[in-house]
Design a protein around this nucleic acid. Structure first.
Lengths: 336, 336
DNA sequence: ACAGAGTACTTAATCGATTAAGTTCATTAT
DNA sequence: ATAATGAACTTAATCGATTAAGTACTCTGT
């Protein structure tokens, strides 16, 4: 392996001079600097990130936390889009990303310890059980963090605009004549709470009353559970005319359940999803849904985290809400 | 930050003793070792992976390469499943994973340089343009690698059993009476070549002749292009009775195209997919497809890479083929 | 001609951990 | 009694790079 020592020898200067030349320090003669850089290239020199990190206390490496526990693993499109864009933006800004998990081999470390152990300059917390105390420990540590879809006190976060998203969907179906709206929601998370609140509030402001049995729990990204919830809705004496699903994948579970009952979409039942994953626009009929700005959420998360890392003293925690957009498919029927 | 120096002071021993005690070296008295470990825990000591890596020349970090160029990014279910399982298995074995990209900030590095720069102990090459010379450079370097779905000479690889997969699908539809089989394949990769070869060979051995116009190119995971290919097939004077899609997502593009022509699946046209992503089993009708063992491929890749890292001298390159299984949906009609 | 100011370097400490090569002391063997 | 053995440490070098502090030399102004 070629090190600065090799270059120093080859150029007849000290290692310090080489280091400075390669980093563009001002007190090196331009001619010397050029000679050193040329020689470095010739020899195939590569800086050693590990050695540099040890000395300067910065690894140019950010941790990404996708909790293994919650169903929301990497393989869900919403999250993998976020991951992809966090990766892209971080690399653009000169940072690599490393996954942070709970257990690393035999050693048992919590997230904070793992991030510390790897000298991560910061951590993006993308999908996690935010009630877990080990998340709180990480967030309240000295390590800069950015959370997605959840806000901790005095910490930076990126939020999907769940409130506006639900509102847009409710208004959309309202305008098409629907008054009996059922909402199948995800498990109890802050996202779910916001969506339920926004759903209820918007309905109320439009003068729609929502019976309690029209609001049913399911599990995010789990077609089976949303299928069951759908069945429960169909068994009610008075069926809704439109069903809101917690996300696009869950809608698929509902879809098969509706089909089983011979109910066609949107003729006999209107539906809307949430997330706007590419799949939803491939399906026929195209799903009416709200596309979350997953890609922008990821890049904003990376950008804010890195700003925070690079300017820790002037940093003010902030929450950015990334707007999405309503995708008008053809799963909502205009009625009476 | 608590370092071994702090522990050494607190225990009245040298740093060397602390290091040895924590690493279970044999020449430390059990009582001393215990005292040191207790003190370390009390002080909240965490080893510093960076410092250790610098000294021992091992980072316990493996690189994962998902080429940004090919469409096959992280967000495709097949790859995200692989990623997830590589991550899980690596962490189980005590390794973290870091993404390796082509550009890191301003510095332009190729994959090899990037992996070297980060001191990766090895690299899993999951999705890439294998004809790209920078991939060859990485693979032919001293860094241990494992490739997925592609084999380089004298290098370890994990292969999905494309040959047997195609064979199983062809036999399946053959047994249900189909004789006019069309195959929409992905772009030209080794995977595609294998599938085409296996498709043709199996057809030949069953006595089916496949006209050239029944074999059409498309792009993996791109519903639009498979939609176009589907249309081309429908315009032929003599339509096939069954269409093979390059993957399950591409099938969706075909599905909408068929629908547009008023052709119902499987009554008027039988179809099969490839991959067996969860989605394919949620759709109605359930897609007949071949599920690749993505999770096993990922964990095998991690396992073999780490074995290779830990026993470099006794290592013999090998190719493991991970078998999948045919998922019998209801998109193939029994005919004639 | 000489103080003072730059310029272009070098020296040496440092980051945190590991490890080969000593050192010390007690125990055992002869 | 003395040498040899082994247990339980310590010393010091090392990994590769950075950087504060120091040095040598040239140039400028008076």
């Amino acid at each position: 392996m070629v090190t600065i020592t090799d270059i120093a020898k080859a150029c007849g200067v000290s290692r310090a001079t080489v280091s400075k030349a390669l980093n563009g320090a001002p007190d090196i003669a331009p001619t010397t600097a050029e000679r050193i850089r040329d020689r470095a290239k010739e020899l195939g020199y590569l800086p050693n990130a590990t050695a540099r990190a040890l000395k300067v206390g910065r690894s140019y490496n950010i941790g990404v936390l996708f909790s293994d526990a919650t169903g929301g693993g990497i393989s869900h499109e919403y999250f993998s889009q976020i991951l992809e864009s966090v990766k892209r933006e971080s690399e653009r800004l000169g940072y690599d990303i490393t996954f942070i998990g709970k257990d690393l081999g035999a050693m048992q470390m919590d997230y904070y310890e793992h991030a510390k152990y790897r000298n991560c300059d910061g951590v993006v917390i993308a999908s996690a059980d935010f009630t877990d105390p080990v998340i709180a420990r990480l967030v309240n540590s000295e390590i800069p963090t950015v959370t997605l879809d959840y806000t901790f006190d005095s910490r930076t976060s990126i939020l999907s605009d769940n409130v506006r998203g639900m509102e847009a969907l409710v208004r959309f179906v309202y305008e098409r004549g629907h008054r009996k709206l059922a909402f199948i929601h995800g498990e109890s998370t802050s996202v779910t709470q916001k969506r339920i609140a926004s759903f209820k509030k918007t309905c109320a402001s439009l003068g729609i009353s929502v019976p309690a049995e029209y609001i049913r729990p399911a599990v995010f990204h789990d077609p089976r559970s949303s299928g069951l919830a759908t069945r429960a809705l169909l068994e009610l004496p008075e069926r809704p005319t439109c069903i809101f699903y917690p996300d696009d994948l869950s809608f698929l579970g509902g879809m098969s359940e509706l089909e089983r009952h011979g109910i066609s979409i949107p003729k006999d039942m209107s539906v809307v999803g949430y997330d706007g994953i590419p799949l939803s626009q491939i399906l026929r009929p195209r799903l009416t849904t709200y596309r979350q700005g997953a890609a922008r959420m990821g890049s904003e998360a990376a950008r804010l985290l890195i700003e925070q890392i690079e300017h820790p003293d002037t940093w003010l925690p902030q929450s950015i809400t990334v707007e999405g957009e309503l995708l008008e498919g053809s799963t909502v029927q205009t009625i009476g």
